[in-house]
Each structure stands twice: as C-alpha cells, then as structure tokens.
Computed example of a mutant assay.
Amino acid sequence: MTAAEAATLDALRSRLADRAEAEGVLDVAWRTVDSPVGPLLLAATEAGLVRVAFDVEGHEAVLDRLAVAVSPRVLRAPARLDRVAAELDEYFAGRRRTFDVTLDRRLSTGFQRTVLTHLREIPYGETASYGAVALAAGSPRAVRAVGTACATNPLPLVVPCHRVVRSDGTAGRYRGGEAAKALLIALEAHS
C-alpha cells in the first residue's frame, strides 16, 4: 500500500467514525497508544472507558470479546479516547497520579467489582498485599479471589491492580506481564 493509499484509507475511516458517532451507532470506539509497557488498546462506550488491554492479550482478540460482551458495533474512532490517551501520557511522564476519566464498569461484576473499587484507594507510589485488599473488600479470606479480580481487571493502569503485591512484597503476576508490573511499580516509586 502506498502512502497516498494509506492516507486515503485513514481519511475514509475517520469519516466513517465521525458519521457513526453523529448517528449514535458507535457503541464501542477504540484506538491504540504507545507506552513504556508496549502498545495499549483503549476502548470506550458512551458511558466511559470500558477496556485497557496490553499487547500480550492480543488486541484483535480483545476487540472480538468486546463485540460479544458489549456490542458488535466496534469501530476505530480515536477521538473518543483522546482524553484517556492524554492522561496516560501524563501518567507515564510522571505528571499524573490519578485518572479522571469516566469508567464504564460493565465488564466487572460481583466481588471483582468490589475489589476493583478498592484498588483506586491504594495511593500512587504505594502497594498493598492481596490480603490487605481482601480485608478492605470485606472478605479477609478471599485472597485468591482478589488475585483473580486483579488478573481479570478490564481497566489496568487506570484501576491500579499493579499496586497489589504478594504478602512477602514480591510483585506477583500481572495481566500485562511481570516486566510491565515491575516497570509501573518502579515508575511510581521514583516520581
């Protein structure tokens, strides 16, 4: 594909996204952004940010799951996600400690939603153990369930599951990979 053909295709996609938004038929808008932890997929409904996905999750697979779980009307429409992209840039530059974007929490239910609500209470630059999060969520014996809730967090980074560590202080696993979790913890510790 030539540069001119690529530019024409991008212009057509942009017009399609603008028209779908104007006609109210854009249920899930998505875009990708580069970050220190690799390319991130961002997806939003009219209600708010619904998904942040790491490259290791397979962006196409994530979009397919969104089409099933939310709506088949999924379209690359970056403008809806400009604010999220800007806040992520600020976060990675060390200029943002919390995110101020509206969240669509429909992909989280039950105990998982309770856990994810408590994760935003862990201060920037600090960590909490899975046990401490279980206690805060009202189920002190549900340590493994907290781990599962963090592992399936549809909004990593924005809902900071990377701040949850094992009781011995080691990082533990992470949806974006152990290297990504270590980088995020180090980034926050040095800001």
Rank of each mutant, 00 (worst) to 15 (best):
A3P: 00
A4L: 11
A7E: 13
T8Q: 10
L9S: 13
A11F: 13
R13N: 11
R15H: 12
L16Y: 10
R19Y: 07
E21Q: 11
E21D: 07
V25Q: 11
L26R: 13
D27G: 04
A29M: 01
A29C: 13
A29H: 01
R31D: 07
V33S: 04
V33T: 14
D34K: 15
S35G: 10
G38I: 09
P39E: 12
L40E: 02
L40T: 07
L41C: 05
L42F: 04
A43W: 05
A44R: 07
A44W: 00
A44N: 03
A44E: 06
T45P: 00
E46F: 04
L49D: 01
V50I: 06
V50E: 12
R51C: 12
F54L: 14
V56K: 02
V56D: 07
E57P: 06
A61K: 10
V62E: 06
R65P: 00
A67E: 05
A67V: 00
R73V: 07
A77D: 03
A77C: 13
A77H: 10
L81A: 02
L81K: 01
R83P: 01
R83H: 10
V84H: 01
A85L: 05
A86M: 06
A86E: 15
E87R: 03
D89V: 10
E90A: 15
A93H: 03
G94P: 05
R95P: 09
F99A: 07
F99I: 14
T102N: 10
R106W: 13
T109G: 05
F111L: 13
R113G: 01
V115Y: 01
T117E: 15
T117V: 09
H118Y: 05
H118A: 08
L119T: 02
R120C: 08
I122N: 00
I122M: 02
P123I: 14
P123E: 15
P123F: 14
G125Q: 09
E126A: 04
E126C: 02
A128T: 06
S129H: 08
Y130V: 11
V133N: 05
A136Y: 00
A136T: 04
A137S: 12
G138Q: 13
S139I: 02
R141M: 08
V143A: 03
V143N: 00
R144T: 03
V146A: 10
G147Y: 02
G147K: 07
T148H: 13
A149N: 04
A149L: 05
A149Q: 07
A151H: 14
N153R: 10
N153V: 13
N153Y: 00
L155F: 11
P156H: 06
V158Y: 02
V158C: 05
V159H: 07
V159I: 14
V159G: 00
C161F: 03
C161D: 14
V164S: 04
V165S: 09
R166I: 08
R166K: 15
D168P: 03
D168S: 13
G169D: 03
A171L: 14
A171H: 12
A171N: 02
R175W: 01
G176E: 06
G177A: 06
K181E: 08
K181Q: 12
L183Q: 09
L184D: 01
L187K: 08
A189L: 06
S191W: 11
